[in-house]
């Protein structure tokens, strides 16, 4: 899939949540908080997305520390680039929407 494709909302918020290492439940909480409760990632959806993002190399799974059984994930440089491009794309969408609705 070309990387110019839009990210899904779930993917976007998962990537945003992973600037600092975070485990699955942490991602769910952060996403809900950032979207003011609008997006609640379901665990099955999140699990599938995390695996797909690891395969893409946009995030990595951190080595599991002793005493902790929860897997943590973190954004990679490649993921960061994708995220920056997506923010620019979203800005274009929002700018165009606002401009046209205002009737300029």
């Amino acid at each position: 899939m070309p990387e110019s494709y839009a990210l899904t909302e779930s993917t976007y918020y998962i990537l945003l949540s992973l600037l600092k290492p975070q485990h699955g439940y942490g991602i769910m909480l952060m996403t809900e908080k950032m979207s003011h409760g609008r997006i609640r990632l379901a665990a099955g959806t999140l699990y599938g997305a995390l695996n797909a993002l690891c395969d893409k190399g946009w995030i990595i799974q951190l080595p599991v520390e002793d005493g902790s059984r929860k897997k943590e994930y973190k954004l990679t440089d490649a993921g960061r680039t994708i995220l920056a491009k997506e923010v620019a794309r979203l800005r274009e969408l929002a700018d165009n929407g606002e401009r046209i609705l205002k009737g300029e």
């Binding site: 899904t8 779930s10 997006i39 609640r40 379901a42 665990a43 099955g44 959806t45 599938g48 997305a49």
Partner: peptide, 13 residues
């Protein structure tokens, strides 16, 4: 709340 899938893509999967 408890759901397994929260978007259309994962339901299709």
């Amino acid at each position: 709340p408890f759901d397994l899938f929260s978007d259309i893509d994962s339901r299709i999967d």
